[in-house]
Structures are given as C-alpha cells and as structure tokens.
Simulated scan of single mutants.
Amino acid sequence: MPDIDMRFNKDMLVLSAPIDEVLARQGVDIEKDREFLSLLEPEAVRNAYRLESVAGAQCLVSNTAGITSARLAHVNMEERAAELAKASLSVLRSLRPQHMLAEIGPTYLPIDASSATSLKQNRDQYADAVRAFGDGEFDAVFLNDMVSLPDVQCALMGVRMVYDGPVFASVDIDGDGNVARRDQSIEEAVSLMAEYGASVAGFATAAPLDAAVAAVKRARVVWDGPLLVQLAVRKNDPKQGIATDENPYYCPDVMVEAATKLRGAGVQFLRATGHATPSYTGALVAASAGFDVIGS
C-alpha cells in the first residue's frame, strides 16, 4: 500500500461513500446500531464495503465517524473505542484497498471558543480518538463533517498532538459557501485548516454543482494543496429526470459531469455522501480514474 501523501496533487482519487445507505436498505437502524455492527456483524459491514471496492474506490473510509468518547457514550460504548477502530480497519484491510482512511467525526459537544478549558476538553476528545487506532495500518486521519471553525481547530490540534501523518479535514457548507451551522466562510475554514496542519482541505455540500465549483475556486485563493469535495445526495431518485436545487445529485449519472467539472477546478479527491449508493462511487471513478489533478 503506497503512502497516500506521495500521490498528493497527482492522481485523481475517489473515497468510498458512507455505507449507511446500503445497510439502511437492509433494515439496519443506523443511528442505533452502526458501531455495534462493526463488532458483531463484521461480515455485513465487509459486504457493504465490498460493493464500494468493486465500484472502484481507491480510498476506503473506516466506519468510525462516531469514535469520539462523547459520541460513543450515547450508545454506551465509550470504553470500546480501540476495539471499534481495530474491527473497522480489519474489515477494510481484508479488501486490500489502495488506501485506508481512519474517519473521525465531530463530537457535537458545545465549544466556547473564548475558553481555554472548553477548547482543551474538545481537543482531547480528538486526540483520544486517534489513540484508539493505535498502531493500526492506515494512510491518513479523516476529520469529517466538522460543523464549525472552533471544531476544526480543536480537531486538528488534538490530532496533531499524537499523529504526524497525513490529515484530511472537511467542513459542511451551504450553497453560499458558508459553514453550514455557522456564518463562517469557506475561505476562513480552509485557512484555519492550513494553519493547524491539515494535509488535505475540503468540504461537503448538498448545493448544486455550480455552487460547489464556485466554493472550490474560493478555497483555491487561500489553499494550493490537495482539495477534497464531497457531494451529498439528498435522495436517490432517477425518476426525477433533471437536477434541481433541492436535489441536484438525484442519480449516479449526474456524478460524471460533477467529477469532470470539479477536476477542472483543481479538485483531487472526490466522494459521494448522504444517500449515495456504490453506483455513485462508480460514476465518480469512471469520470476521474487515470487522470491527473489539473493545475498540479
């Protein structure tokens, strides 16, 4: 497995979509049972990832978004973070992907940006989450779905306390290019990622493609490193027939144009999220595999 940082600003790469949609279609209660599945039903999780692997995803993302102790406490698993991390990486490793990313999602704890104590408590949550992965073999930490700039700051500070490898960071933004839960711009978010040691900066959005491309161009003003864009599928509905502002990524075919335009804007890493299925991943791969990053 080559080091992923050797490919930065070179090859176009696609991250696996979250496996939640596949599991939900099988009747799994995602909010309640996501973490338990990795421990109790690893074969079901492996089968979901196998579909992403067959679709061509070069980077498989671990099923560990809720690995911080604050999140695990809601399902009474706060003492099992290391066990969860090991199980998730084991599933990915069995599929022999080109790269594995260890995902860590937000704590959802309140953060008082003016309080050193509050920042430290949140920072330590992320540091502990990285420690849970121990010496497990993975290519990068993936800080995903960050909901505010203080969250980005705490997450990166925590990770960099204990890990010196590549770190992906992504915030959720709206159609105006602002962090979805705050009145903070994509430029501010990406600048903060750079300041606190992100290797790859990115965002996720459910906004139409033109808005996503515009956000990429704004990010490029303050960041010349690798960029990640995640397009959130609100509903997989091929019968819709045409992209709308409410549901721009209504079928996998739309991702072909999306991948082409985002590559043209200088994006390297692509991912479909939300209600995306492996077909969305396959479309992104079909439109980007074999290409180099434009502007590299």
Rank of each mutant, 00 (worst) to 15 (best):
Thr68Cys: 07
Ser38Met: 10
Ala44His: 05
Ser115Tyr: 07
Val54Gln: 15
Thr107Glu: 07
Glu83Arg: 10
Gln98Cys: 07
Leu84Pro: 13
Ser38Pro: 02
Asp112Leu: 10
Lys86Tyr: 06
Glu52Asp: 03
Pro106Arg: 01
Leu15Met: 12
Asp112Glu: 13
Ala82Pro: 08
Thr64Gly: 03
Ala17Glu: 02
Gly27Glu: 10
Pro97Gln: 06
Ala113Met: 06
Glu41Val: 00
Val45Asn: 00
Glu103Val: 14
Ala73His: 11
Asp33Cys: 04
Ala65Trp: 11
Ala44Ser: 13
Val54Met: 12
Leu72Thr: 00
Ala57Cys: 14
Leu101Gln: 01
Leu13Ser: 00
Ala82Thr: 15
Arg34Gln: 07
Glu78Met: 09
Ala116Gln: 15
Leu13Thr: 03
Leu72Trp: 11
Val45Thr: 04
Leu51Val: 07
Ser88Gly: 08
Leu101Glu: 03
Leu51Gly: 02
Phe36Arg: 12
Leu89His: 04
Cys59Asp: 02
Asp112Tyr: 11
Glu103Asp: 11
Ala116Cys: 08
Thr64His: 07
Val22Lys: 01
Pro110Arg: 12
Glu21Arg: 09
Leu101Ile: 03
Ser53Thr: 14
Glu43Ala: 11
Asn47Trp: 10
Leu84Asn: 14
Ser115Gln: 08
Leu39Gly: 08
Asn76Glu: 12
Tyr49Gln: 03
Lys120Thr: 13
Ala55Glu: 04
Asp112Lys: 11
Leu109Gly: 05
Ser88Glu: 12
Ile67Cys: 05
Leu60Trp: 04
Ile111Tyr: 01
Leu13Phe: 04
Glu83Phe: 10
Asn122Tyr: 00
Ala70Cys: 03
Met77Thr: 07
Leu92Ile: 11
